[in-house]
Design a protein around this nucleic acid. Sequence first.
DNA 1: AAAAATAGAACAAACGGTTGCGCTGATTTT
DNA 2: AAAATCAGCGCAACCGTTTGTTCTATTTTT
Lengths: 341, 341
Amino acid sequence: MDNKLPTLKEIARRLKFSVSTVSRALHDHPSIGLRTKMQVKQLAKELNYEPNQTALFFKQQKTHTIGVILPNLKEEFFSQAINGIEDVAKINKYSVLIGQSHDDIDQEKQIAIAMKNQRVDGLIVSISKHTKNYDHFISLRKYNIPVVFFDRVPDLPTVHKVASNFNTGTKQAIEFLITKGHRRIGVINGPEEMKSSKERIITYMEVLQKKRIKIDLSLIVTTDLTQVKTFEAMKNLLDLKYPPTAILTINDYVALDAIQYARKSKLKINKDISFVSYANLPIINYLEFPPLASVEQYPYEQAKKATEILFDLFNADNIPDEEEKKYHNILIEGQLIIHKK
Amino acid sequence: MDNKLPTLKEIARRLKFSVSTVSRALHDHPSIGLRTKMQVKQLAKELNYEPNQTALFFKQQKTHTIGVILPNLKEEFFSQAINGIEDVAKINKYSVLIGQSHDDIDQEKQIAIAMKNQRVDGLIVSISKHTKNYDHFISLRKYNIPVVFFDRVPDLPTVHKVASNFNTGTKQAIEFLITKGHRRIGVINGPEEMKSSKERIITYMEVLQKKRIKIDLSLIVTTDLTQVKTFEAMKNLLDLKYPPTAILTINDYVALDAIQYARKSKLKINKDISFVSYANLPIINYLEFPPLASVEQYPYEQAKKATEILFDLFNADNIPDEEEKKYHNILIEGQLIIHKK
DNA sequence: AAAAATAGAACAAACGGTTGCGCTGATTTT
DNA sequence: AAAATCAGCGCAACCGTTTGTTCTATTTTT
């Protein structure tokens, strides 16, 4: 097993050139003669020479790797997001290191530290549903590791982030339900820590006020996204004296659980009770009783944009510190998708 | 921005020790005095010293990173598999680099090359559904990068692999259908390139023969896993003079499409026609008309086992080449899960 | 023909850490 | 008291590549 990979030194030895000459030859440096250049290149090709990336990473203090931290990959939202990240990374010849927090703050911290130590050049993050403290990300600034958040973003002005504009989608969703004749619209919201949860409620109230529909706070319940809590939330809604005729749920997975609960309660979906949610999962197409509509949040586009910003930051780093360093804060418009059926 | 990370050199300078002393002190080398050791460790802690991984990777010619190549992450099967890989990697303090082939052979090759250049220490692979040629993986041997395949594995004796034992699951599935009274059992199989496709048919025939049920080859159709082809396959089956009363599909996604088609054809699921498939996706639980049963293939366990083998190989590499180098070939037993409903 | 300019290549340092070996002064052995 | 031992630390090489500087012919200029 002659497992030794060819190095510049090896090429230099065979051709009786110096290592530096070989290096420059391969880089088409002007101070290398044509003959030499040809010889070097040919031998390099013969030997299948590939620069040792670990040496380069070390030398350049760059790893050409971006880290991605997100709650999990099993939600299709995030696996689609990965595609957006990968695509941009590939264009820039970067690799992607992925870590799942599984919505656990400690794991999130641990991964962030591991990625710092691995010397990733930058980080794309969608925070866990319980994260309230962002120190483990903020501290990366000391190491010049830029961080761009997407989808689940911290509620801080001093970070780069790309998120869905829940406002628009929520507005469309509620108006859609009102148009369909619904007046008692329930909401199964996410944990209060999540920025999107607050925004959803604000928009919900705004729309109802404008349409002069009385707001009933008992119609607003929360779930931590687990099935158990969603069932509880549904029970609370259905046990009301005047239960809602339509429910807005924080995402499609919650909607699925909610629908399941409604069916167990012998309710006719889309007749006794209708659902609208967020995410627009492909799986919806296979359901017998899907939500009436979903707010598409374009995970691919969000993640892609976040990654593009990250690469901008890599370059901006070289630019002398502008005093007023701008923080990117992009909103991707959601879009209500009405499911035909 | 004092972005300079602390180095051994920095610690040595401040304490007026040599770099080597500092290095050894941090590693509890016996030839370093207690006083010195304490001083060094304290300052290291104060400065938040962390060894520069890129330097270590370079020096040790190891990246402590394993590469994973799989068709895609949006199939829950694979995102669960990732968890198995991550868990084992974490125990061994390894990072995980992920690449999706999107079932495209060229992308698969490209990723394999990129990972080789990144100097991953080893590779976990589930091949694309069209891959017939394995040179891009075999050639990694030259670079001493071990490869372990899982789930979708090459049909070669000279590779390490972990796969599902389709035999058992398929047998259970068909016998289950026969017990339910079905005599005309259709199969929507995968592309012939896939090893599992062949095995499925063999078992199918064996079971039918044993049960003395006549084999009708027109009941066996194939799909490339796309919806279009699955619909075509379904059409072929349903247009038969004596269409099947039950269908075995290669996986749950195909089953979903097949069920959708059957419903469009006004067939009553689980009455006019029943389905059994492979994978046992969680989503099944939300369906109104799920397959009767699914063969669970334990992606987490498969991937975990594959990764454990990979780490074994890392160590085995140091052992002098045994002439008879064994190739791992693990089969994980599938298990038919009958969906209650 | 001597001086200046230039092309083409070599030298050497640097990135940060590990490690075999050698050095020094103190302690123990004979 | 001289010799041997040893604890404790420094020196230097090395991993592969890049790059600023220097060197050496050769060519061009005057």
